[in-house]
Design a protein around this nucleic acid. Structure first.
Length: 515
RNA sequence: GGCCCGUUCGUCUAGGGGUUAGGACGCAGGAUUUUCAUUCCUGUAACACGGGUUCGAUUCCCGUACGGGCUACCA
């Protein structure tokens, strides 16, 4: 049986886009489902676009998401190195081999000359200049130059590139696992540069060579690569590797939430939504942003959301653990059309995961935020807090934003609500209620909140008070706001001493609000 | 411009020659709830268009329109 090997091959040119995470996810799922290997390969062949820290970001993002490579830089593996810049010499060897076999040639045209040729073509009404069979005869390359001339230019150290010699008249058919058969004619293809003048390969050469050398069986990548796959097939043919060419699956793009086009970094800042997994500290504030993690998403919620952007299991199940995703995933179920990024849906998934998480787990996520604000609550209190708040939040930071009063005390009371409901004449009754609450034993306070409730209810009954007269006031006294967990659950969590203190403080203040 | 890919509710999608075209998000209404939220119920809303093929097309084929991608010594 074939050993399945898939790779995720990002370029370290900045933060990894959320679409990249989805590509990594799908690769990961295929690998795990089929018992194969998930390989991380860093495609850093463009020295000009290299961004320091980008590779570390990629690795950290994958780790946060739980998509741990089986092989890759820092992850071991027998097919390394996994950074293309460290495999430079191999590409040059294959490029020369291509020249020897007549499938490639040296080209000495400078960028300026090419630009001039482009301009000239445009002047003739040709929209795009293509370095191909039709024009290469008029350009400076080893096909037009004599062998001696070529040799001497090479020996003189003149800059050159190596180009793929595309023979016209060929049909190229790709059996894409997502799209079915996709066909191209070689006449439409240009003589792609394989090896750049700095000695580095282009993506096309490097990805074919590495996929072969790393024994990659399935290439799962974004749809933007579909057109260039024709060139890749030609490369496999030229190398006589076509018999073991990987299978291709081109994934639909992730589109902007609004408007047109694919999701971009700009959309994140423009719409105030995360489009990257992790935050990124750029050189300037404009180049810095928060990611899903900083917005307060749980990694599995993000993954679940992403999994459904372009795939679905064909059942009505929507919540999937990683194990379930691995079980349910299949390439055949990948959707062909682009998927709009739906932030509301992302938040819904997160909310579902927060609801389902146990309090101890939530406490782990909430604790750092409290610490940032200077609070180090006891574990039991924190867990109780998480339990009361988890059905009221969508993103992790909301625990603090909506429930800070559990730690800070009430900073601000909802005056309007007090003015509407508070009756100073009933002040003695509220004081009496506080007294009767204070008489409840610690065991009652620490037990089922229902007991505090029962005690309050009997007090209300004995004094002719309705729940609507009392509970809202207790709520505001304890929390300052009309929103939040059930009153008696708050009391139970806050404890007898704190609850009573808050009541005492608030009742006095309420009178002053009325005046 | 050329080439390639795509098109089912606003969004993510299921489905597939004859269906009340299903689910989810969102939105609206209702129930529960002392609040908020949760939960539950109900509602809203879709097969881009035109030709074929067929007894019958949303489903198959071809066009058109629209959308997207690619068209660098970037990946």
């Amino acid at each position: 049986m074939e050993r399945i090997r898939v790779r995720f091959a990002p370029s370290p040119t900045g933060a990894l886009h959320i679409g990249g995470i989805r590509t990594a996810l799908y690769n990961y799922l295929i690998a795990k489902k089929l018992g194969g290997k998930f390989i991380l390969r860093i495609e850093d062949t463009d020295q000009g676009r290299f961004v320091p820290g980008a590779e570390e970001y990629i690795v950290e993002a994958l780790q946060w998401a739980g998509l741990i490579p089986d092989e890759g830089p820092g992850f071991g593996g027998a097919y390394g190195p996994y950074r293309q810049s460290e495999r430079k010499s191999r590409y040059a060897d294959y490029a020369r081999q291509m020249i020897e076999s007549g499938n490639a040639y040296y080209a000495f045209d400078t960028p300026e000359e090419l630009e001039a040729a482009r301009e000239a073509a445009k002047a003739q009404g040709i929209h795009t200049f293509k370095y191909d069979a039709a024009v290469r005869g008029q350009l400076k390359n080893s096909l037009t130059l004599s062998a001696a001339e070529t040799r001497s230019r090479l020996d003189a150290g003149e800059p050159y590139v190596i180009r793929l010699k595309v023979e016209p008249g060929q049909d190229i058919a790709i059996e894409d696992m997502v799209r079915g058969e996709v066909t191209f004619r070689s006449d439409e293809l240009d003589d792609k540069i394989l090896l750049k003048s700095d000695g580095m390969p282009t993506y096309h050469l490097a990805n074919v060579v590495d996929d072969r050398l790393m024994e990659i069986t399935h290439v799962i990548r974004g749809e933007e690569w579909l057109p260039s796959t024709a060139h890749h097939v030609l490369l496999y043919r030229a190398m006589q590797w076509e018999d073991r060419m990987p299978r291709f699956a081109h994934l639909p793009l992730i589109l902007k939430p609004d408007g047109k086009g694919k999701l971009s970094k700009r959309d994140g800042v423009r719409l105030g939504i995360p489009v990257f997994p992790l935050g990124w500290a750029g050189a300037t504030p404009e180049e810095s942003f928060r990611g899903f993690r900083e917005f307060g998403f749980l990694p599995q919620a993000m993954l679940n959301f992403l999994a459904f952007l372009g795939w679905n299991p064909g059942t009505e199940q929507e919540m999937f653990s990683m194990e379930e995703l691995i079980q349910a995933f299949s390439v055949e179920k990948i959707v062909k059309s682009g998927a709009r990024f739906d932030y509301d849906k992302a938040k819904w998934f997160n909310q579902q995961y927060i609801h389902a998480a146990d309090n101890a787990q939530l406490a782990e996520w909430v604790r750092p935020i409290l610490a940032q604000n200077g609070y180090e609550p006891e574990q039991a209190y924190l867990e109780g807090f998480c339990g009361l708040m988890k059905e009221r939040v969508t993103l992790i930071p909301e625990f603090w934003e909506k429930g800070a009063y559990f730690f800070t005390g009430v900073q601000e009371y909802d005056r309007a609500a007090v003015q509407k409901k508070w009756n100073p004449e009933r002040r003695p009754l509220f004081d009496a209620l506080a007294v009767s609450l204070s008489e409840l034993t610690l065991a009652v306070w620490q037990g089922d909140p229902g007991e505090i409730k029962t005690a309050t209810e009997s007090f209300m009954q004995a004094n002719g008070l309705k729940p609507g007269d009392v509970l809202p006031m207790l709520r505001i006294a304890l929390a300052g706001t009309m929103q939040g967990p059930a009153v008696f659950e708050m009391m139970q969590l806050l404890g007898r001493e704190e609850s009573l203190a808050r009541l005492a403080k608030a009742f006095g203040l309420f009178d002053t609000f009325i005046a």
